[in-house]
Design a protein around this nucleic acid. Sequence first.
DNA 1: AGAATTCCCGACTAAATTAGTCAAGTATGA
DNA 2: TCATACTTGACTAATTTAGTCGGGAATTCT
Lengths: 138, 138
Amino acid sequence: MKLGTKGRYAVMALVDLAYYGQGKPLALTEIAQRQSLPISYLEQLFLKLRQKGFVASTRGHLGGYTLAREAEAIRISEILEAIGEPLETTRCDKSSSTGCLGTNAKCLTHALWAGLGAQMHQYLHGISLADVCERRVV
Amino acid sequence: MKLGTKGRYAVMALVDLAYYGQGKPLALTEIAQRQSLPISYLEQLFLKLRQKGFVASTRGHLGGYTLAREAEAIRISEILEAIGEPLETTRCDKSSSTGCLGTNAKCLTHALWAGLGAQMHQYLHGISLADVCERRVV
DNA sequence: AGAATTCCCGACTAAATTAGTCAAGTATGA
DNA sequence: TCATACTTGACTAATTTAGTCGGGAATTCT
Ligand code: FES
Ligand code: FES
């Protein structure tokens, strides 16, 4: 149960973008340096973030990325989902009604893990990019 | 962010033990079959669980494992910690005061991830083996 | 125009971790 | 004494992660 770099870097980079970018585009190299993240890896992540509508890009000299939405309106949970950081606590297929084994009943621990997942999601849904920037996190 | 099999299997097995074992020792093969878990893998896990004092073992014919403590007194968080399921949300050394990079200040996202970790721990600490068995989980 | 800068995109790979297996031994009860 | 069951360490296959690499396309500065 550990957070991978994909989700971690995506959030770090977006926080940096919200924190240092005042409307003007920020180049990926700048973000990467400040947060000391591998730049070619960040490119991958921002590709997805743009496709999902979190950031907008400007090409060429003085180009870079800007937030496409208000920092107050971007929930951490959304970022993680967009980037493909799974948050998988249960093991059974969420859509079908079959449990983790073939049996179509849920296993004894299902409610436990589902509850954990819900707890995590609720926490991450309740915090926005702006909250992190302004250190409004308990 | 996904739960590994180590932690998952350990909890499943202990729940099974609490649920079906009434004081009498339960053989690992029985638990493994019922939960359809690989037995030689479970052996590894129960080694640790015994060393940490969660279960007691009886060898020989009709042997097996019993809970060494009351099911009400075993928190899920304890099991995960004992088995080595990390629950790592932050990346910085928890003991030292240095952040995830060399800087001795914490990064902007530290509080976010620390909060997530605390949230998870609190949830898992609030639930006992007995709670899972008797389906007292939201 | 040309050069520099920056995003765009897919393919590929090395390292780490996970999720086990295997084999040999020890203790106990029927 | 035989079958059952725990004990323990070493070893390995498969998967996932965490990236790298290379070439391209758009934009602006000189
Ligand atoms: S985890 Fe959902 S049924 Fe077992
Ligand atoms: S995660 Fe603790 S300082 Fe960055």
